[in-house]
Design a protein around this nucleic acid. Structure first.
Length: 473
RNA sequence: GCCCCGUUCGUCCAGUGGCCUAGGACGCUGGCCUUUCACGCCGGUAACACGGGUUCGAAUCCCGUACGGGGUACCA
């Protein structure tokens, strides 16, 4: 058996849909698993819109996901003449014919004849001449059926009497995707067509054309279960968060996204979900793909992304997060950002975020000029309701005034010591960290203080403590 | 309406006639750790749509019903 050739054939809609990305991924996984070839073909049937921008909108997300293609991008629009030739050949051979009936006329005829809505071959023997507005329809067989031996769904049989004489060339002379598909898949030697279930109904039509064109055995089809939203409807551009680019800008890692997508409709037998792509490639098979639609759960994506972030080296994390860390909308002046500081605290941040976009919120107090706002709830809890916060802050100030702020362990023991000493003196539990934290960060929770304080430096720390102390009085 | 597809915990996946008193993950939740928040660790929660068959034995095979989805275009 020759090695498989698969293709991902998206329409240039201006962005890459997560559902399309999943289809691309499964094609890629199959190609890489079998040592086959992955072809990228842009299905730009109505040419006008194939601008570079639309092409980039497909290739960039694919590259981001690491789905490298072996051939292409090929463009359907550039092969138009071949599609037209195929249409003409079918007409010449009597396998297709011209039709000048409008939609309205077709509906009227159906109603008049008491037939179900749809086209019922009315122009088959009318000898309509070609011309503007005249379409070409394929003469679908009246009897028998076409069987699709789907690699995922098994045998799917469609009776020919349920397939009307469908249009294969529009009134303006442009071929529709059905004929383009058959011609292109044949010419490109495609052996496996892996795509979404929404296209299952079109498979018999393409196969019929394939056979009429004398192309021999059609490719093996594999229809992937659809990705649905919470309402169990096919993901839609309007209602759902489907542009892959959105996930890029929200700080998801390509490896995490790819891993998450691979788990929709497929799962490894050993139940290890988060794993290197090489292992996924090795275990992947079309036969193991599910048939039921899958909901793309953002919570699970967050978890997977968080795991990938935790597994990064601090340097890799900082580099990946820098677009957000130095963004214009970061909660501090981008010029204040200091990579050395971010690197030193990276591990503390990594275990607290699930996306890269969340990173700035944990480090902001290190890059901000001063703490101008205090979280009210946290202030109330640590200061208003806390035990002797004024004394805690005073004692910390006294204890740290001479400190050189280079030893994180000493900073920790000094601050904790203040709490312990006060607890003994007042015979009650006194927390020293809480008032310090709100003074330094303005918040009630965050990364550990000690290492961060060495980077903030003595002067800044004492200034902030003094500012908070003044606010108490 | 017609055609096609599907149905295991709330969600994603494992399970291909006996190893299933159905397993893992997310979520939710109880606890431990912790002078913050997290992480980590231990535990809990919850499903084979329903009805018939086949079989010694069915989540796994067959039929039907219900429900859900996709398609039904001169969009792809």
């Amino acid at each position: 058996m020759t090695s498989p050739r698969v293709r991902f054939a998206p329409a240039p809609t201006g962005f890459l849909h997560v559902g399309s990305a999943r289809s691309a991924l499964f094609n890629w996984l199959y190609a890489r698993h079998t040592g086959g070839t992955f072809v990228l073909r842009v299905e730009d049937t109505d040419e006008a819109k194939t601008t570079q921008e639309f092409i980039d909108a497909i290739t960039e997300p694919l590259e981001w996901l690491g789905l490298d293609w072996d051939e292409g991008p090929l463009f359907q629009s550039e092969r138009r003449q071949l599609h037209v030739d195929a249409v003409n050949r079918l007409v010449t051979e009597g396998k297709a014919y011209f039709c000048d009936l409008s939609r309205d006329e077709i509906d009227a005829k159906a109603e008049e004849a008491g037939l179900p809505a749809g086209y019922h071959g009315w122009s088959r023997d009318r000898d309509v001449a070609d011309g503007p507005g005249v379409v070409v329809r394929f003469r679908a067989p009246d009897d028998g059926s076409t069987v699709i031996d789907d690699a995922i769904r098994g045998r799917v049989e469609v009776a020919h009497d349920t397939i009307e004489d469908f249009v294969i060339r529009r009134g303006d002379g442009s071929p529709v995707f059905l004929i383009a598909n058959a011609v292109d898949d044949h010419d490109m030697g495609i052996t496996h067509v892996i795509r979404g279930e929404d296209l299952l109904n079109t498979a018999p039509k393409v196969v019929l054309l394939w056979e009429a064109l004398g192309f021999g055995d059609p490719p093996i089809y594999a229809h992937l279960p659809l990705l649905v939203n919470e309402q169990r409807k096919k993901l839609s551009k309007r209602r759902d968060d489907v542009a892959l680019a959105n996930y890029v800008s929200r700080g998801y890692l390509p490896e995490a996204m790819r891993n998450a997508l691979a788990l929709l409709g497929w799962g490894p037998t050993d139940e290890v979900e988060i794993r290197p792509i090489e292992e996924i490639i090795e275990q992947f098979s079309l036969e193991a793909v599910n048939k039921a639609p899958a909901f793309f759960d953002p919570k699970k994506l967050d978890h997977i992304n968080a795991e990938y972030i935790k597994a990064m080296t601090p340097m890799a994390f900082v580099e990946a997060a820098e677009p957000w860390l130095t963004a214009d909308d970061a909660p501090y002046a981008a010029a204040n950002y200091d990579r050395t500081v971010a690197l030193a605290l990276a591990e503390d941040v990594q275990q607290r975020v699930s996306t890269l976009a969340e990173a700035p919120a944990w480090l902001d107090w290190l890059f901000v000029d001063s703490v101008d706002e205090y979280d009210e709830k946290a202030w109330t809890k640590a200061i208003v309701k806390g035990k002797v916060p004024d004394r805690v802050l005073d004692d910390i100030t006294a204890a740290l005034t001479e400190d050189d702020f280079t030893d994180r362990d000493r900073l920790e023991s000094v601050v904790m010591g203040v709490g312990t000493t006060l607890s003994e003196e007042l015979d009650a539990r006194v927390m020293s960290q809480a008032p310090l934290r709100i003074a330094l960060t303005g918040k009630g929770a965050g990364i550990p203080l000690w290492e961060a304080m060495t980077h903030l430096g003595r002067d800044v720390c004492l200034e902030r403590i003094a500012a908070a102390r003044a606010r108490i009085d």
